[in-house]
Every structure is written in structure tokens, then in C-alpha cells.
Amino acid sequence: CHSECLGNCSQPDDPTKCVACRNFYLDGRCVETCPPPYYHFQDWRCVNFSFCQDLHHKCKNSRRQGCHQYVIHNNKCIPECPSGYTMNSSNLLCTPCLGPCPKVCHLLEGEKTIDSVTSAQELRGCTVINGSLIINIRGGNNLAAELEANLGLIEEISGYLKIRRSYALVSLSFFRKLRLIRGETLEIGNYSFYALDNQNLRQLWDWSKHNLTITQGKLFFHYNPKLCLSEIHKMEEVSGTKGRQERNDIALKTNGDQASCENELLKFSYIRTSFDKILLRWEPYWPPDFRDLLGFMLFYKEAPYQNVTEFDGQDACGSNSWTVVDIDPPLRSNDPKSQNHPGWLMRGLKPWTQYAIFVKTLVTFSDERRTYGAKSDIIYVQTDATNPSVPLDPISVSNSSSQIILKWKPPSDPNGNITHYLVFWERQAEDSELFELDYCLKGLKLPSRTWSPPFESEDSQKHNQSEYEDSAGECCSCPKTDSQILKELEESSFRKTFEDYLHNVVFVPRKT
């Protein structure tokens, strides 16, 4: 048989008469490798580009789960590009990614509803959504962080984005990388972005840091009482949809009607710091009717980097990364020049730590249904340095008659930039024990000054392991946590139920 035959053949030295091919099969003959313009397919066939392209389009058009959109890589027609490569849609070739590779997620039936953290986790790592997304989240724990972890990498949506009755959302900033909504599939009414009845939605994105392009379709905003109209108009300008909307697409009466839409800028007039305090004062603000001013709200939190936005980490279910302080308005003076500047002394802060701070007014709604208010920009203030805590785990070892090696770990709280350490030492008198000992005694162990690591005695271990207080009263049991108490109650309830079950099964009433 021919060298490319495997198993047997019907005619000697003829690659077209093989029972099976050793390498690849091409047009009725066995070959060692697939010549151009053919590609290896499933490690035994040679196919042309049209064959591989037909497989790709067949799966793409069917949208069946589990099928493969075949691509070409290293002269092979394979189910998908290997790690580190992405497909070129024009020629199906796998090309190296520039940075992290995109991950295209194809949605069944063309859309997916995100109504819980669990459903959001199914899209973790996706960068391109081939379909439409509907966000409908009523509640949950730590929602802002969970949504950002699972949806934060999405850069492109081919269909539309719909935010509907998501009472738990305060902001859409968890879509931190969303840059493009194509609108290839539109919501009824030709809408590519749809926001309806979101009672706590206050911000779409921080438009000073976020760009969003909507290729096709219109915007729809109705019944978002805490979303200011200025935020919607800003989205029109940034996304390129200005002029597409009709009169009733953006409701003037049901958007922002319960919001404090600040239209003035508060400026800080005085800032002073110490290692654990920050004193702030800002310019006074009074609405047209000074009785509408209820006070100020001061927001602050630790910020290692200057990239904080107002609604980071917030949701309507209680999660809030900001510390909020309510401040009463100052006494009002008739003389504008003698107006008191409101302020606040922030206490209990960490030394040498940068804080993000902003302040906003708290006002009631005027009778004319106009909203007044003022808010400052987010500023960054760093507390002063102070003395560091003591170095940890000092170790001293003498390696000769004239040297001592000293080692330690950095302090747990540096409280500033540590530039150097101060080492103090003092000579001590020799131990009298060394002169009084009889060095001729056998088995004498000389006193040693070398360091030995501390260890816990058996008594201390027994005390720590004991669940009861000892007789001397030195140790006591740790208080039980809520989960331990709940577990004990469940076990007790189970024992009672099981005992009742045994009584009912074992003891049967005697027939009379």
C-alpha cells in the first residue's frame, strides 16, 4: 500500500485506493498535508475557505447554543480562536489581540433580562453583547459592586439597553466600559436606550469621564423622579442622539420631579488639616426662599486615587461607600458681607490618608415646582503625618564578641513616609551569675543571650482551647457569634421535631 494509506488498500502504491488515510483526505486521495488554498479540518480532512465560511455563517444565523462559528488559524479551520487571539470578521482569520481579548457573548432569543446578581454573573467577562440587555433589578445585597464585577467589562451592545423598574439602582456607572450601543435591534418605538419607572436612579454616568455613542435609535425617559433633566440632556449631547427624540420621548413632568437638581456650584473657602482632623468651610448658599434650606450634607471617604465619582458603590438597598454628615444651616444675616460661612470639623480620621470630599445642599421643593440647590466639586484632601507606631517583631542576635545583629519589621501604621529608623542602645553591667558559677561542674549549661522565638506554653494553649472559665478566673470563653447562636437554635429545633416524629412513629394507638 501507499505510504499515506492506513489499515489496508485495494490497489498497491495508489493513494486513492486506501481504506483510511494516515494524515489527511483531499478529493478522494490521501495526502501528507493540505496544500494551499485548503485548510486542515478536524485533523483528517482538507477543506477550502468557502466550506469553513459556510459553517461560520450557519452557526451565526441559527443562534443555536453550542454550535461553533468556525475560524481560520495556522492553516486550520477550527471552532474558535485560541487564547490571546480574536477573529477578523472580513476573512475569519485569528489575529493577536492588542491588550485583553474581546469576548463576544451571543444571547438566546436576542435579549437577556438581568433581574438578579445570579443572572448578571452569566455575563461575567463579556466585552461584546450580541443582542439586547434588559435591566430589571428590584433589590439585593452589595448590588453596585456585584454588577460592576460582572457587567463592568461590557464595551458594546449590538441591540438596545433597557432599564425598567430597577428600584435598587442609583447610577449606571457599573457599566464602566460601555462605549457603544449599535441599535441594530430596537425596542418598540425605535428606541435604543429605554429608561422607565426607576424610582431611585439619580445618575446615568459621570459624563466628564465617560463617552457613549448610540449609532441608531432614540432615547426614552419616563417616570424617573430623581433623575434630573440636565442629566438626560447631557446624554443626548454626548451620545449623538440630540435631535432624534420626539416631543413625548422625554417626559418633562415625570423626570426629576422629586430630585434636588443642583444648578449652582458650592466653593470651599477654608481648608485646614491635622493628622486626624480636617476643618472645612464653604461659601454660604440661600435659595430664593431661605426657609427652603434644610441644611447641608457632607460626604467623605478614603480615596487612594483621584478618580472618585459621587455615586460609586451606591445602591438604593443601603450600600453606600460614603460617610454622610448632616449639618444645620448657619444663622442668616441681613448683611451679605457678614454672612457666616458654614463648615464642619471632621474628626477621627487616619493620618497621612487622602480623602475625597464634597458637600451639597438639602432643600425642600418650592411652590413653583422649581428645584434649587448647590453642590461642590469633589475635592481631595490629605491629612498630615504623625509619629508612626512601633516597629514590629524586633530580633537581636550576637554573632561574635563585638557585634549584635538587630532586625525588625516595619510598623503596622507608618502614618507617613518613613525615611529612617533611630536605634538606641545602652551598655549593661555583666551578670554576677557568670562569676559565681563553678565551671568545672559536669552538665553545666552556660547562660545564653542568643534570641529564641517566643512560644506559647501548654497552660496558655489549654486556656485558649477551654470553653469555660478556669477556677483562677484568668480566662473566659469568647462570646458566641450570631451565626453560632442561630445554628444552635436550628439544631435544637431539629432535635425537638425529630423526637416528636419518633414518638408518633414508635407509639401507635392500640386498636379498641
Rank of each mutant, 00 (worst) to 15 (best):
L161S: 01
H341D: 12
K360M: 01
L279T: 04
S321A: 08
R176N: 06
L151N: 02
V324A: 10
A259T: 07
I114C: 04
L227G: 00
M346V: 09
K277T: 12
F221M: 09
N198S: 10
S166G: 04
D292I: 01
G243V: 00
L196G: 05
T309S: 15
L298R: 01
H341T: 14
Q121W: 05
D276R: 06
V390D: 02
K226N: 04
K360Y: 00
Q258P: 01
I134V: 14
K226M: 05
T185Q: 08
F358S: 10
I232V: 04
E111G: 15
W344G: 14
D289A: 03
L151R: 02
A259H: 11
D384Q: 06
D384A: 12
V104I: 00
R244K: 14
I114M: 04
I271Y: 02
G256Q: 06
W286E: 03
L219E: 03
K337G: 12
E109K: 14
N141W: 11
Q199G: 11
D257G: 00
Q199S: 06
K242S: 11
S269I: 15
K162R: 11
Y223C: 12
S269P: 00
L252W: 12
G131I: 01
T323V: 11
R291H: 01
W205L: 15
G131R: 01
I163C: 11
C261N: 03
A144T: 03
N334K: 12
S396M: 06
D206R: 07
G373V: 02
E146L: 02
K103S: 05
D393E: 05
Q382C: 12
A195C: 14
G159A: 12
G110C: 07
W322K: 00
A120R: 03
A303L: 10
E231S: 10
G217A: 05
N399K: 14
D315W: 15
R369S: 12
K350H: 05
R247Y: 11
E236K: 10
E146T: 04
I404S: 00
N263M: 02
K209R: 12
G125A: 08
C261Y: 01
S208L: 14
D289V: 03
R347Q: 04
L229D: 11
I114D: 02
R179I: 13
V397F: 15
I188V: 10
T215M: 08
N198T: 05
N130T: 07
W344S: 11
G110N: 06
E246T: 08
S260R: 04
L266A: 03
Y300P: 01
I137T: 12
L280C: 14
P410K: 00
R179V: 10
S366P: 05
C126K: 03
Q258C: 04
Y191H: 10
K162G: 11
R291N: 03
R202P: 11
D257P: 02
T353M: 03
L153E: 15
L107G: 08
S119P: 08
I114K: 01
T309Q: 14
L147T: 03
I404L: 03
A303R: 07
S333P: 07
G343L: 08
G313C: 08
D292L: 02
K409F: 05
K209M: 11
E148W: 13
S389N: 06
D393F: 15
N255P: 06
K209E: 06
G125V: 07
Q245I: 09
L265S: 13
W344Y: 09
N136Q: 04
K253W: 14
D115G: 05
S239V: 11
L201T: 05
R247E: 02
H233M: 02
G159V: 03
K103L: 04
S398P: 09
A251P: 11
P410E: 08
T254M: 12
L392M: 14
L123S: 02
L362C: 04
Q245A: 11
V359L: 07
L107C: 14
V104T: 10
F221I: 15
P394Y: 03
L298P: 05
I134D: 04
K177D: 15
K226W: 02
E187T: 10
N307I: 15
N340R: 04
L143W: 14
E187Q: 07
I357G: 11
K177T: 13
A120G: 08
R202Q: 00
R179Q: 10
V381H: 09
I114G: 02
Q354N: 07
R370P: 08
K301G: 04
D289G: 03
W322D: 11
I278L: 02
E148G: 12
S319R: 11
F193G: 02
T361L: 00
L293N: 00
V324I: 08
G140D: 12
N211C: 08
W286Y: 02
L107A: 12
E187H: 10
Y160R: 08
L153R: 09
Y380A: 01
E236C: 11
L151S: 01
K162A: 00
D335V: 13
S132K: 02
K209P: 13
H210R: 09
R281L: 12
I357V: 15
G240W: 07
H106V: 11
D326S: 04
W282A: 05
G152M: 10
S338M: 13
N340H: 11
L186R: 13
L280T: 13
Q403I: 08
L406R: 00
I188C: 03
S398K: 00
E236N: 04
T118M: 09
P225G: 14
S398V: 04
S319C: 13
R164P: 07
P391N: 00
N136F: 03
R369A: 04
F311P: 09
L362P: 00
I114A: 00
N200W: 04
P288R: 14
T361D: 00
Q203T: 13
W282I: 03
R291S: 01
I154L: 13
D328S: 13
L345S: 07
L186M: 13
L180H: 10
L172W: 02
D377S: 15
D115N: 12
S239W: 13
R124S: 07
L279P: 01
L204K: 04
E156I: 10
L169P: 11
S321D: 04
E264Q: 05
Y372R: 05
N320H: 14
H341W: 10
W352G: 03
V104Y: 03
L349A: 07
L298I: 06
G313D: 10
R347K: 11
Q382S: 05
T118V: 11
L123F: 05
A120S: 05
K234A: 13
N150H: 15
N255F: 11
S333W: 02
I395L: 10
P287F: 01
I163S: 03
L406G: 00
P388V: 15
S208R: 12
N211K: 08
C228G: 05
I404V: 14
P410L: 10
N224L: 06
I137S: 05
R369Q: 10
P329S: 06
E246A: 08
E156P: 01
G256E: 06
Q258L: 06
K234M: 15
K242H: 14
S338I: 09
L204R: 03
R369T: 05
I188E: 02
S400T: 08
E237M: 10
D115V: 15
Y160L: 10
P288V: 14
S116R: 00
Q354G: 11
K337L: 12
D377A: 13
K350G: 03
F175L: 11
L204G: 06
E368M: 02
S173I: 08
C261W: 04
M346Q: 14
E236M: 04
V128G: 10
T118P: 03
L196C: 07
L186Q: 12
W322C: 13
R370K: 03
L151P: 01
I181G: 05
W352D: 14
F174R: 02
K277Q: 15
E283K: 11
Y372K: 02
Q121F: 04
G313N: 14
Y194T: 14
Y372S: 05
D367H: 06
Y305N: 00
N211T: 11
E246N: 15
K350Q: 11
S401I: 11
